[in-house]
Amino acid sequence: MEGLIQIGGAVALLVLAMFTGSIIERRHYASIRAREAQFQNLPAIPYELPAGDEQPLAEVRMVMGSTVVSIDYFKQFLFGLRTLVGGRVSAFESVLDRGRREAVLRMKEQFPDADIIVNMRLETSTVSASTQKALNSVEVLAYGTALKYRK
């Protein structure tokens, strides 16, 4: 009987995670797409300015944005199944994708009037927790140098 309750609890948690997790992911993607459209005129490039670029500058500022995204219980369950056969873990890919795009957007939000962000770097690290098994989250940091040209 006790075992049944335990299994029932785990299943209920899994179903809860599946629904809320997918709702959160869908909302997040909608918000990311909307904000990315807003910033389509502010490119972020991963290299320094080409030597020929000698436009006079009005402002130079370092910008950074970061986010910690967690991997929900259901995705972790999928991952557990996936490890049996190996291969691509698409459940985790979307989490990292969301994290990176969110971090880049937050970086851009620090200086929305900039013309370009050069030498952007992305860094990903896992945030370990006191209870390793229960917690899996990833921190993504985006940083670069925002330039505003004098017009």
């Binding site: 986010t67 910690v68 995204v69 967690s70 929900d72 219980y73 917690l135």
Partner: peptide, 16 residues
């Protein structure tokens, strides 16, 4: 709190 939030996924604002 993050442990609870981790069940459903999403951003862990406290950590950020």
């Amino acid at each position: 709190m993050a442990g609870l939030k981790n069940i459903v996924g999403g951003e862990l604002k406290g950590y950020t």
